[in-house]
Design a protein around this nucleic acid. Sequence first.
DNA 1: GTTCCGCATGAATCGATAG
DNA 2: ACTATCGATTCATGCGGAA
Lengths: 292, 292
Amino acid sequence: MMIRTDILQGDCRDVLATLADNSIDLIFTSPPYADQRKTTYGGITPDRYVEWFLPITEQLLRVLKPTGTFVLNIKEKAAKGERSTYVLELILEMRKQGWLWTEEFIWHKKNCYPGKWSNRFRDAWERLLQFNKDRRFNMYQEAVMVPTGDWKHKRLAKLSATDKIRDTSKTVSGFGKNISHWLDRPQAYPSNVLHLATECANKNHSAAFPEALPEWFIKLFTQDGNTVLDPFMGSGTTNIVAQRMGRNSIGIEIQTEYCELAKQRLEPAAIKLFDIKQNYGTFTENPLYAVH
Amino acid sequence: MMIRTDILQGDCRDVLATLADNSIDLIFTSPPYADQRKTTYGGITPDRYVEWFLPITEQLLRVLKPTGTFVLNIKEKAAKGERSTYVLELILEMRKQGWLWTEEFIWHKKNCYPGKWSNRFRDAWERLLQFNKDRRFNMYQEAVMVPTGDWKHKRLAKLSATDKIRDTSKTVSGFGKNISHWLDRPQAYPSNVLHLATECANKNHSAAFPEALPEWFIKLFTQDGNTVLDPFMGSGTTNIVAQRMGRNSIGIEIQTEYCELAKQRLEPAAIKLFDIKQNYGTFTENPLYAVH
DNA sequence: GTTCCGCATGAATCGATAG
DNA sequence: ACTATCGATTCATGCGGAA
């Protein structure tokens, strides 16, 4: 099967207008948060964030299939002792546009940013807001099943001490590292809490979120040959994962450097794709349990 | 030290009016959720929830000390495929009343009720919204410090295999089970995610939350002799924990049966209090790591 | 081949200082 | 008064090199 991965350079407010109606199965994106990443993006202030974002969500509503899903990764910052309210306001305004606010998943960050302040602790979670166009949307729940805690306790004795120490319950949507450990396991459905580590600067690029995050939602909301869109592509993590999983994808990014980086990261993956598909069928079927 | 625990029967909209201004150090409560517990407060529908709740938060703002904190445990239900938005609207409206929305903690429920629906997974988390009257409020962060992950990796080899399997990082505010494992440990500040088990129905009353939940916030936001208020007392979990920890408390409950139940639960606890204080000093100093 | 240790690095936040 | 910049504080992760 031929997989398309289109990297479109430009402001997503313009580029989205060129996409066809009802053509996308999943939108997964992490827009620049208010007052954050000022060096790479303009740095939208919290009080103007909703006004800036709503024209974009209007386009997203147009290009999404009625059976499709929009997953928005976002977290409001704290300033002067208070959390900003723009995410709350955004949800309310998007509903006025016609979006259904289906669910709020929590990304519980294992390794959140350190810090200590007199009035608050470290922020260890982000929102993954699920929006839909229609109450009837595609959801492939079996694709994200996880090993049960019961199985874990029985089999874990066979693993190395390091594996044991690092292990946590998978029924709360944590993800194991080695596929060999999770074969033929009894499975359970996960919950709406994802317990993942952020990807630090261990590689030569730093992504805003770990690959496991788009991976989980791509498995849950799309099938082979479907199309995934990320209107704030960044270094292309969503598209790379989509390509590996046999999904078409579109990535929109305003910065040319990030577009180049994404293309570099995509090409070797495209070559690997066929090897993986031929030799390790389970990899694409259950990529969360494979070592990347 | 003499600890007062006042159980006040009545509608909190009336009873709160009898409390003095600026007299409460911590308000911790879990109000009836919209469309839940229909018998108690007449079954508040989601669309009228904010309007019903705002007069109560106005009273709470009045009785809270300027240095005090209000922690609201709440989670919106899903109906007709969507999450209700009344919690979001409530936050926005409370800010208009003068509340500061300081933080949103997440209670990640370890063993929530299993379930699966065609369009969503188990809801494994609830909100713990922190509101304050003033940017400068009392917070005793050292009282809730937890073992570091580093300590875990270095020392865990000495523990039994079962202990290893059960262990997870405590700095993301999970709670250990056996205090003996955590003596002389290096400590770190927790995060804003609380990873607690829901309390099983092994007692003859069903509480909305486990004791560890009010316990953590009472430790964090109050000191000995301070006063804790729960305007939706239910079976009195908040007051029982407050009493055990040497805090005065006030519980307001509209149902006489719950008031009676709370009184029954409180009396034996009052007797035990002195035993505990005399014999197990570490219990009150660090009750989260004790088996209840 | 393992295991262990060192080390850099994050969607952070506050208060103080400077323009 | 209001915004912009800076230093101080803090810790899980995973890579690479050493034992």
